[in-house]
Design a protein around this nucleic acid. Sequence first.
DNA 1: TTCGTAACGGTTGAC
DNA 2: AGGTCAACCGTTACG
Length: 366
Amino acid sequence: MTEYVNASLFPLEQTYGEVNQLGGVFVNGRPLPNAIRLRIVELAQLGIRPCDISRQLRVSHGCVSKILARYSETGSILPGAIGGSKPRVTTPNVVKNIRDYKQGDPGIFAWEIRDRLLADGVCDKYNVPSVSSISRILRNKIGNLSQPNQYESSKQAPTQAGLSYNHIYPYSYPNAMSPNGKMGSGPGVPVTAGHVNISRAWPSAHSVTNILGIRAFMDHQAIAGAEGYPQKMEDWSSINRATFPSAHAVNGIDKSAIDADIKYAQPSSTLSSYVPACAYSPSNQYGVYSGPGSYVTPGHPWQSQNSSLSHPSSGMTMHAGDIHSTMPFKHPSREGDRKPPSPLSKQLQQEALSSVHGLNLPTSSS
DNA sequence: TTCGTAACGGTTGAC
DNA sequence: AGGTCAACCGTTACG
């Protein structure tokens, strides 16, 4: 904590950011901006060493490592879903069954209901509601059996209108929802394009499939969100990871999972998908980082630097300003051999960094 | 020097 | 409405 350069540079912006040892600003508990995350991956793709990336972007090496590892595993630069709970287990279907049980046997105990849910295969051991939850359901939603549709009328409707939920829930979990409500396969989840019925569940998967296959689109709104930071969390929900609509929601996904908890279902957002947009509040995210020099030098090198990063493997071109650019590559440089870390010469790396950021890299000078 | 990772303090959001 | 809980975050320090 020796340098407070950035903080002092942008006193108005850094209302609650903290400064790390590298002089970068961060918000404890909050993910880095997607732009930074993307940049980290981009630079890694260019063969720039994580340590250099760390210094360049003033992001802790641990974070760089984490993001790259995550990208390597999932193909996504997006942070995971923060907060919230596991997908709710008291889905309409479960409630319906509970109600049925209760109607069939008004004296049934909650634990008996629980057992029956398991026995009948309505739930499995991972998503079976707790006894207390069942009790609550009985009390709150099924209390008056004379109104059998109480739940469905009050709950079903909104879920059917799940699309609108997307504006409420910053995270949506398109397919990713697995019936068991537990984290899916996590690291190493096969992300073969075309196979979207990933078992990964909570919070979600950003697979290469998402990135490669489900190429939706990215409009400038998203860009504005990423770089202009004008949008609110609700708006960002439409460009988060969950925005892998069709492929997930339609293809391969257990429809019941969607039905079960449609709030995790993905609307076909107008924004794109694999876009490295964040799943969390941009207001949080960027309210702090919004300063052009929060992570990098003033002048907002993220934008309009005309630095195009070509990825030979994919043939795509990535513009520095196009934070929304696809990430159709899968960590080629990290695949297998990190050492020698760079396919590029030192000089090229330097050029890559400085061209991208308009900065001089303090890097390997060490 | 570099990098992976556990610990930590923090935020978030469903329950 | 507010507390709890469990997910995630990035930083730091250690090996």
